[in-house]
Structures are given as structure tokens and as C-alpha cells.
Simulated scan of single mutants.
Amino acid sequence: MAQKPMTKSQLVTAIAEKMGTQKKEATEALDAITQIITDEVSQGGAVTLPGVGKIYCRERPERMVRNPATGEQMKKDADKVVKMTIAKALKDSVNN
């Protein structure tokens, strides 16, 4: 069975232990990183996290979709979607 994802509080605790700081400082650091990534990607930019991957926004064109309940075809407007490509180093570490 798959393990549950790490929660924010668990991540903050792990960051604080690795940095040798208080949880408050680790929370501030995590919140700052999250805000920077959100701001950059929402403006159409991309953020590379070394050893983890690249987070970016991609535009999807207008397209036809099908309602699974009725089978009806309908037009969906163009939109944006956030994507992430995983770094080779992370892929390799998972497979070893």
C-alpha cells in the first residue's frame, strides 16, 4: 500500500531539522518559496528546482471535449495548466 504524502507540518519539521533552525523560520522559508513559485508561474514564467524539476505554465488551445455522462460533444475554451517536469537526478534516485 502506498505511503501517505508528507504534510506541510511534517515538511516544516524536516526542513527545520536539516537547517538546524526553529520551525517558525522553516515555515517562513517554505511559505516564501511557495509564494515565489506561485508568482513566477502565474505570470507565465518557469521555476527550476535543482535536483527536483521544473514547474511551468502551459497554454492549452480551445478544443472539443465529451461529457462522459451524456456523451454530448462541447467546446471548451482555451485555458492554462501548471505542469512539472521531473529532474533526471530525482528519477534516478527513485529507481536505485
Rank of each mutant, 00 (worst) to 15 (best):
K91N: 14
K88P: 07
P68L: 01
L30A: 03
I55R: 01
K18S: 15
P61L: 05
D31C: 14
G44A: 00
K83R: 14
N67R: 00
K76T: 13
Q3C: 03
E25M: 14
E25W: 08
T21W: 08
A16D: 03
E17F: 03
S42F: 14
T7V: 02
A87W: 01
K18W: 12
A89R: 06
L30F: 08
Q35I: 09
G45E: 07
Y56Q: 08
E28K: 04
M6R: 05
G71D: 10
V47M: 01
M19N: 15
V52D: 07
M74D: 11
V41L: 06
A69W: 06
L11F: 04
S93H: 06
A26F: 07
A29L: 00
A29N: 01
S42D: 09
R58P: 10
T7L: 00
K4S: 05
D31N: 15
E40T: 15
G53W: 06
Q10K: 12
V41G: 02
D39A: 02
D31F: 08
K54E: 11
Q43D: 05
I15A: 11
M1V: 15
Q10F: 03
M1Y: 13
M84C: 11
Q73G: 12
I37W: 08
P61H: 14
D77P: 08
M6I: 15
A89E: 00
K91G: 12
S93Y: 04
G51V: 00
Q22F: 06
E59K: 02
V52Y: 10
M6V: 14
A14E: 05
D79C: 06
A32T: 07
S93R: 13
I36Y: 12
I37C: 11
N95R: 11
C57L: 10
G44C: 04
M1W: 08
D92K: 03
A2Y: 00
